[in-house]
């Protein structure tokens, strides 16, 4: 059992393609976290904004971030399945 585990770890270490995919996944996770943070910031700004025109612009940005997050989550899901 231990030997099998060791072999699995070794093959994971030597599998460059898998390594690249893990790296890609991790980068996407970092970006999604950043987008979430930005979304929370924007929501707060929209809440506080008095100027109607500026609020509309911020709303647009918020919509974009939501769409980007959905797209990113979908890609992440696909990467997890590979």
């Amino acid at each position: 059992m231990k030997r099998k585990k060791l072999l699995k770890t070794l093959s994971r270490l030597l599998d460059m393609k898998g390594h690249k995919q893990r790296e890609h996944r991790d980068e996407l996770k970092v970006l999604l976290r950043k987008l979430k943070k930005k979304k929370v910031e924007l929501e707060e700004r929209v809440r506080l904004e008095q100027d109607e025109r500026k609020r509309t612009r911020l709303d647009k940005e918020l919509e974009i971030i939501n769409a980007q997050r959905i797209k990113g989550l979908k890609t992440l899901e696909e990467l997890m399945q590979v």
């Binding site: 919509e63 769409a67 797209k71």
Partner: peptide, 24 residues
């Protein structure tokens, strides 16, 4: 710059933008 690949994954294309536009 290490995040550029991920950024390209989430960048919206024309069809994504038109979906948001129709929704709006």
């Amino acid at each position: 710059q290490h995040l550029t690949q991920a950024a390209h994954d989430v960048t919206l294309d024309k069809s994504d933008l038109s979906k948001i536009g129709t929704q709006a």
